[in-house]
């Protein structure tokens, strides 16, 4: 085939995908907001995404905080700016690493599970069955997941920020010779509300991306076990890439603040 033609077909296909994902998201949000609501489903998703991701996200955060303290100490010692360690740890965590790493971990844990669950429901006709039982799958299945992800990821990131700072604190006081008082003082002194808020906004966007990719890929899956497997992989890969892309876009939007 003509290479130009192939590029064109690929581009058209890509645009069509974006269009159908956007439509899918808008339909789910629109119908979900219009009600009827399913509080039990929303609660279940919030617990599943928020509470059960805590161990994974917490472990990621504590080691990230610890390694950040060590690495920035090594770097800053070269121009005698070791005292900046606490500030570096807290600002990198809240603005950047907290939301991105939590987003990636949740993509692996929650996004994959959603794609697999919805994919299985699709291929076993459970989604069609919902329709015949006067229940809109967008309202009952998709909206609670999107809402749960968007609400719970910021909370997770807030917890991750605190745990991460604690990781830096442990390394700072036990290995790097900071006094506990100085370390906490340094942490809080240069931290601005904006840093945390930017991080939480990012987290909400990432939570939406992860759940949307999980739901969309699961909902669209076809053809039995293999199809569900492919959907799960796609959900994690697309969500991870989109998190990194949107991380840059959001950082640029908030750059001067």
């Amino acid at each position: 085939m003509n290479p130009l033609r192939r590029i064109g077909a690929g581009l058209l296909d890509f645009c069509q995908q974006i269009g159908s994902i956007a439509t899918f998201a808008l339909v789910s949000i629109g119908r979900g907001l219009a009600g009827p609501w399913y509080p039990a489903q929303i609660l279940r998703q919030m617990i599943d995404i928020g509470y059960y991701s805590l161990p994974v996200v917490g472990l990621t955060a504590i080691f990230t905080g610890m390694v950040l303290a060590l690495q920035s100490y090594t770097g800053f010692a070269r121009f005698e700016a070791e005292s900046a360690v606490a500030t570096i740890v807290v600002v990198s965590l809240t603005r950047e690493l907290g939301p991105v790493l939590a987003g990636l971990m949740v993509a692996g844990r929650v996004g994959a599970a959603m794609a697999a669950e919805l994919g299985t429901m699709r291929v076993t006709e459970q989604i069609d069955a919902l329709t015949t039982l006067s229940t809109d799958p967008h309202r009952y299945l998709i909206f609670p997941r999107l809402l749960g992800g968007t609400l719970m990821l910021p909370l997770l990131v807030l917890v991750a920020d605190i745990i991460g700072v604690f990781g830096g604190f442990v390394v700072g006081t036990s290995k790097l010779g900071f006094s506990p008082y100085t370390y906490i003082d340094q942490t809080l002194q240069y931290l601005e509300t904006q840093d945390v808020v930017v991080g939480l906004v990012k987290a909400a966007v990432f939570g939406f991306i992860v759940t949307l990719m999980g739901c969309w890929n699961g909902y669209q899956s076809r053809g039995g076990a293999q199809g569900v497997g492919a959907a799960t992989t796609r959900a994690v890969v697309t969500a991870s890439i989109m998190i990194l892309v949107f991380d840059y876009i959001l950082t640029e939007i908030f750059f001067s603040r």
């Binding site: 076993t124 006709e125 459970q126 069955a129």
Partner: peptide, 29 residues
């Protein structure tokens, strides 16, 4: 759709719900 009831090929029961909630799912909707 209110006029229809359907038996799916594989049953298509909701596997996260017990039998009684499956049976009354439509009624409760």
């Amino acid at each position: 759709r209110h006029k229809f009831g359907m038996l799916f090929q594989g049953g298509a029961l909701f596997d996260s719900l017990p039998v009684w909630e499956n049976v009354t799912f439509g009624v409760r909707a």
